[in-house]
Design a protein around this nucleic acid. Structure first.
Length: 449
RNA sequence: UCCCCAGUAGCUCAGUUGGCAGAGCAAUUGGCUGUUAACCAAUGGGUCCGCGGUUCAAAUCCGUGCUGGGGAGCCA
């Protein structure tokens, strides 16, 4: 007999008669004559109730079933007379695949996130983490669906890189095990911190492209919003200016959020009900409000006029501190807000110089509770301006010869941004620590699993 | 890397002024005719994070290290 997944069973309108399911026992409630078991196979948040009468041939073994035990259950799918579920299975045959001994660490109660992090290999068997990782999977597909529908090409850029692009952050060194030949590629190489520069090359050939893959930062960051290995989505669009770049980012965020609400309703409900009381309102804001759009200069004015006491001084020319960003997104706008046109001194070389000669066409999307979700810009497409900027910042132009070539031969205005995938997941689930939206998080001093 | 907080049973935590190590849940065993994180009863379970110090006496005070959490910086 063929196995049916529990998410399929639970959606049935009428019983097909006999069914076979396989999964793990979540809870078991025994009486003298029968035993109730909730079986979960990970296909859905909900489990299915199984009733085992004591006239089953192997009932003495069934009595020994513990939480976490894997089983195969065959029986009639019947409408449940009990409250709380539509369907239940009256078991005619229960095969115990593997007993989970008493040392199984997941109990029939709520565990702390900190504890579950120490058993990251088992935490997807809990309701909350099962839901989180189903949503993560669905969002990865949704990204590809969004870009497929928009006619973008999916590009995979190298994870091992030679160039120290944008000089942003510490990079992990890639070495060869052979003594004396550590530089396998003949020169220093690193794990990528961004696929942007190669993506620009392909945007200037295929038009609209996006990269979506792992990214690495060797920063010694110890916060709930940083990990050393994370996934980043980077669209790059030819013939696209800063405004269109923002339009695109806003459309993307709304599309993905709506997709989660449509396709992961049951799992999203768990987060709305039990994880973050303000999540429902936040999602409504994401879907239905127009994101704010102001320049860095306007933001400085708002902060100066706010009369709020900040720990760090608000001053034109310096980067905004977390508390400033939080004030703008959470207090002033109470919704996501794009900040544009930052002073050139606090942004990388590739951003397009504005006509004022002081600011560049940068854009950050600040989101309540998360901070920076998107960072991007219109790229500098004028060869001479770009070369001048690189000189100012003491970058070796010869290392970027291929990058500069793109501005030499048929250069066009183009734009793009990076979106931190895990931060997006935090935003739509209300999960407050980035370590809990990635299967096996890598953080300084921690690489278990 | 810096600042703050924490570390006691498998989990979540209490432990008063320095004076015999505690609870709930879980586990184990038994009971129970439809349960919903079932219920009732009994039983077992401790390197009080490690090291050093003060003291007649340290889970408790001091020093130090480690681990975890919150915040900052850096960023996505």
């Amino acid at each position: 007999m063929k196995r049916t997944k529990i998410n399929v069973l639970l959606k049935l309108e009428k019983t097909p008669g006999k069914v076979l399911i396989k999964g793990w026992v979540r809870t078991k409630r025994d009486s003298k004559e029968f035993s109730f078991m909730d079986i979960n196979d990970g296909s859905a948040l909900k489990s299915i109730q199984v009733i085992a009468n004591n006239d089953l041939e192997n009932y003495p073994d069934i009595e020994k079933i513990t939480t976490g035990t894997s089983v195969a259950v065959a029986g009639q799918l019947l409408e449940s007379p009990g409250k709380g579920q539509k369907w239940e299975i009256q078991a005619s045959d229960i095969e115990i695949i593997n007993i989970a001994p008493e040392s199984y660490p997941l109990q029939k109660k709520r565990h702390s996130d900190e504890f579950l992090r120490t058993i990251a290999h088992l935490r997807p068997r809990t309701n909350k983490y099962g839901a989180a990782f189903r949503i993560r999977s669905e969002m990865m597909f949704a990204i590809h669906k969004f870009y497929k529908e928009k006619g973008f090409r999916y590009l995979t850029t190298p994870l091992i890189t030679g160039a120290d692009c944008e000089g942003a952050g510490e990079m992990f060194r890639v070495t060869s095990p052979e003594p004396g030949k550590e530089n396998f590629f003949g020169r220093e190489s690193n794990l990528t911190v961004s696929g942007q520069l190669p993506a620009e090359m392909f945007a200037l050939a295929l038009g609209d492209v996006y990269t979506f893959g792992p990214t690495f930062r060797a920063e010694n960051s110890n916060t709930s919003r940083h990990v050393a290995e994370f996934w980043m989505l980077e669209p790059e669009m030819a013939f696209c200016d800063l405004k269109e770049n923002m339009d695109h980012g806003e459309e993307l965020v709304k599309y993905l959020t709506q997709h989660a609400m449509n396709e992961c309703k049951e799992d999203m409900d768990l987060f709305i009900k039990f994880v973050d009381k303000s999540l429902s309102k936040r999602i409504d804001t994401l879907l239905n409000s127009e994101f704010g759009r102001i320049s860095y200069t306007e933001a400085i004015d708002i902060l100066l006029k706010s009369k709020k006491k900040f720990d760090f001084k608000v001053e034109y020319g310096t980067d905004l501190q977390s508390e400033h960003e939080r004030y703008l997104a959470e207090v002033y706008f109470k919704k996501p807000v794009f900040l544009t046109d930052y002073p050139k001194g606090i942004k990388p070389f590739y951003m397009r110089m504005n006509d004022d000669g002081k600011t560049v066409a940068a854009v950050d999307l600040l989101v309540p509770g998360i901070g920076e979700l998107i960072g991007g810009s219109q790229r500098e497409d004028r060869l001479l301006v770009l070369e001048k900027r690189m000189d100012e910042m003491n970058l070796p132009k010869e290392d970027y010869w291929w990058y500069l070539d793109s501005r030499k031969f048929g250069s066009v205005p183009h734009s793009g941004f990076g979106l931190g995938f895990e931060r997006f997941l935090m935003m739509i689930t209300g999960i407050s620590n980035i370590r809990d939206v990635i299967p096996f998080p890598r953080t300084p001093g921690s690489i278990d699993f």
